[in-house]
Design a protein around this nucleic acid. Structure first.
Lengths: 233, 233
DNA sequence: CCACGGCATTTGTCTTTACAAATTGAACCC
DNA sequence: GGGTTCAATTTGTAAAGACAAATGCCGTGG
């Protein structure tokens, strides 16, 4: 016997109707009272099912107007970027982090702006590489906003990667990304051990606590060798 | 007066404690009874607040063991890829779609496999370009699985982009992505109106209904000119 | 015909009450 | 000491009742 909760049964039934096309965008979904009658449950149970579907974006609810199937987003798609380590080990390679440099210096103007920091202010710069077996998988240039995370100055990042330490020790509320492709110049080619001119995938990431930037990371991948794979929904 | 619902007040209070670091990963969160007493509300209201925080991944709940702050994901980051049109118009450019070719043919082996189709089976191939003002923003090669979407054969994609038509007319349950960088070969360079060898950003997307692939899309961006920007959470 | 207002409907939140399910921790037996 | 059983605690789901808030609809009046 199915001991799946009733609200879940209701959700599944409605979801099936929507995904099968039996209910199209804009169509009215039965009201809470109606569903409660159909499934022989209380209005609260029907309400919960509809509310959760609304939270997931499948339906739109308005008082008095009732519930209708949400218009297909048309908009975007959510993808998940796994952590480097997860990505590498998921492909069956051995993971290794190598610290290249760690210095206390003033970042370039672009970076300073991204960090919301004053020009010339000194912050922490950590540069490292993530290896997949014998090949460089990612080159990681990170600036840590010392105004937000002064404790980072006391950390030696030779053992822990900056990414890892930050995740463990610094709370954040949001992350902004920018993904682009570029051709490797001399320095990048050397760092990644590829030929100059190779196409690289670059991910720039600013993590924030509220609206205060915590870190700026610039991650480079040899794009011809590896690719980021993301999952559904 | 604040007419924000009580469960929301509870959520905000706990979220604040977690994000400020007052509660660290692994720390116990007060139980439902305790919260109900603290906020002078019913257990169900406290339950709803905790349940929603658990749905959002901030806390972990186990019967008898109680509720504790979830370990920081460490894992991945969710980003949102906006639709091409949204992306272009969001930057203030005029959007235009141009159909290049539309043919009924057998895809290459790799594509056929991604579509879950038999070798040599004919499907619908739609190739087009998305323009931002006078420049090519994206080149889009799409294969539509006719076993799943036979109706696509009757559509002339000169007016509507394939992406748009599919979103409007075909339900899907999941999308898989792969993002990579590559250097433009002759044909790609011509299609995107860039110099050969320019670094390109490529997004490959397979959309599914259940586990049956609907479409395979290969999207190329001139990476030096444009980049994808994603939003928080 | 149009503008305004009130009414009825539908969703949103909350309380109280109840029982089920999971799991920890302790008592218990061997 | 080690494994097993049992009970208490905590979360999960549900019902019924109640009132609040939003808003589409219709009727009224101009």
């Amino acid at each position: 016997m199915a001991d799946t909760p009733i609200y879940q049964l209701v959700k599944d039934a409605l979801r099936a109707k929507i995904e099968s096309g039996a209910l199209l965008a804009g169509d009215m979904v039965p009201g809470e009272e109606q569903i409660a009658a159909d499934f022989n449950c209380s209005r609260l149970t029907a309400h919960r099912a509809l509310r959760e579907l609304a939270d997931e974006g499948l339906v739109v609810r308005r008082r008095r107007a009732g519930t209708q199937v949400a218009p297909r987003d048309g908009g975007g798609v959510l993808i998940r970027i796994p952590s480097v380590r997860e990505e590498i080990e998921g492909r069956g390679f051995a993971y290794r982090y190598e610290l290249l440099t760690r210095r206390h210096a003033a970042p370039a103007a672009v970076i300073a702006e991204a960090l919301g920091a004053a020009q010339g202010e000194r912050h922490l710069n950590v540069v490292g590489r993530h290896w997949a077996d014998g090949r460089v998988f990612q080159h990681d240039t990170r600036w840590i906003n010392l105004a937000q995370v002064p404790a980072a100055l006391d950390v030696d990042f030779s053992e822990v990667s900056a990414n890892h330490w930050l995740l463990e020790n610094v709370p954040y509320t949001g992350v902004d990304h920018e993904i682009s492709a570029l051709a490797a110049d001399g320095r990048a080619a050397e760092a990644l051990e590829v030929a100059a001119g190779t196409a690289l995938l670059r991910i720039e990431r600013v993590s924030r606590l509220g609206d205060r930037p915590i870190t700026h990371a610039s991650m480079l991948h040899p794009g011809a060798l590896f690719s980021l794979k993301s999952e559904r929904r």
